Computed example of a mutant assay.
Amino acid sequence: MALLDLADISFGRGLRTLAEGLSLSVAPGSVVHLTGPNGAGKTTLLEIAAGLRRPWQGQRRCEVPLHWLGHRNALAASLSAAQNLQAWADLQPDAPGSVREALHALGVDRVRHRPTRDLSAGQKRRAALARLLMAKRPLWILDEPFDGLDHAGLADLAALFNDQTARQGAILVTSHQPLPARVRCQVVMPLAVLP
């Protein structure tokens, strides 16, 4: 059984139609990579998949807990990485993981007490991604998670992807660049800009 099903959905932004009759299924153990040019509706589709936006038509079915990580990192600039992650964890009933261990696993433990505004773009992204380790949720929906990451960061995130699919979790992800080759179980779904 799929962790996420979108059936015959249509959606847009404002009055502009971005997709019509689109169906998508995300199976356990898979990585579905949405590709396409700017304006094709990748982020809007992810928001619908995450339950943050309703499609104009069609059905969404998702009955498992999910992680949503948008293009912005959702980190308070005046708080440290550790404070941001702890504040998030305090609001999650299923996030018993250790803040320090999650930040360490993502390579930002040594800067965990610095205000987030003082971190590099890659460090901010890693701190935001550490949420994935705090609660083991079956479905990850990630908008451009590789942005700002260096070579080591790409390798770390690829390893997280493979850990997620190995335990029969799934990932729906957008990225302007191809996913690292070491990411297993990839399915590429291109979106096109409608005329």
Rank of each mutant, 00 (worst) to 15 (best):
L149T: 01
L66C: 12
D109H: 15
L85I: 02
P190L: 04
A77I: 05
C185P: 09
S25W: 02
L4H: 00
L45E: 07
V26G: 02
Q186P: 03
A87I: 01
D118P: 08
P190N: 03
W56F: 10
D143L: 09
A76Y: 15
D94W: 11
H151L: 15
G41V: 08
L139Y: 05
S80E: 10
P178T: 00
R72V: 10
R114I: 07
L15Y: 11
Q83I: 02
A128P: 04
R53M: 13
R137G: 07
L69M: 15
F161K: 00
H104R: 14
L132T: 05
A128F: 01
Q57M: 13
P138D: 06
L157G: 00
D109A: 15
P37S: 13
R126E: 01
V193H: 12
I48C: 02
L6K: 12
L45Q: 08
A81I: 07
W140P: 02
G153T: 00
R16Q: 15
L79G: 04
G97I: 07
E144C: 01
L91E: 08
S80G: 09
E101G: 11
R16S: 13
D90Y: 08
A49Y: 08
Q168D: 15
K124Y: 03
S10I: 01
V173D: 00
P180I: 00
L132W: 04
E20N: 13
P37E: 14
Q177N: 05
A135D: 07
A87N: 09
D8R: 14
L66R: 14
L139A: 06
P55H: 03
V111S: 02
L85K: 02
H71F: 03
A166P: 04
G70P: 05
L142R: 02
P195C: 07
G29L: 02
L132P: 03
R125K: 09
A40G: 09
L75M: 00
L18W: 07
L24W: 05
A159L: 10
R100P: 06
R72E: 14
R125V: 01
V173L: 00
S98D: 04
T43S: 15
H104F: 12
T165Y: 07
R60Y: 02
L132G: 06
L91A: 12
V188Q: 15
A82K: 13
R110N: 13
A181Q: 11
A87S: 09
I141D: 02
P195F: 09
V111F: 00
G58Y: 01
S98Q: 01
D143H: 10
C62K: 06
V31Y: 00
L91V: 03
L52P: 06
R117K: 13
L139N: 07
L24I: 05
G36T: 10
W56Y: 11
A127R: 03
G107D: 06
R114Y: 13
A102Q: 01
L132Q: 01
Q164K: 10
A40D: 10
G70M: 03
L139G: 06
A50E: 05
D163L: 13
L91S: 08
D90F: 08
T44W: 10
A76F: 14
E101S: 14
N162T: 05
A121M: 12
P65I: 04
R182L: 14
A159T: 12
V32F: 05
L22Y: 10
Q86D: 13
Q164H: 04
L22K: 08
G36Y: 09
G169F: 03
H71E: 05
K124M: 14
A81E: 03
A159V: 07
H104V: 13
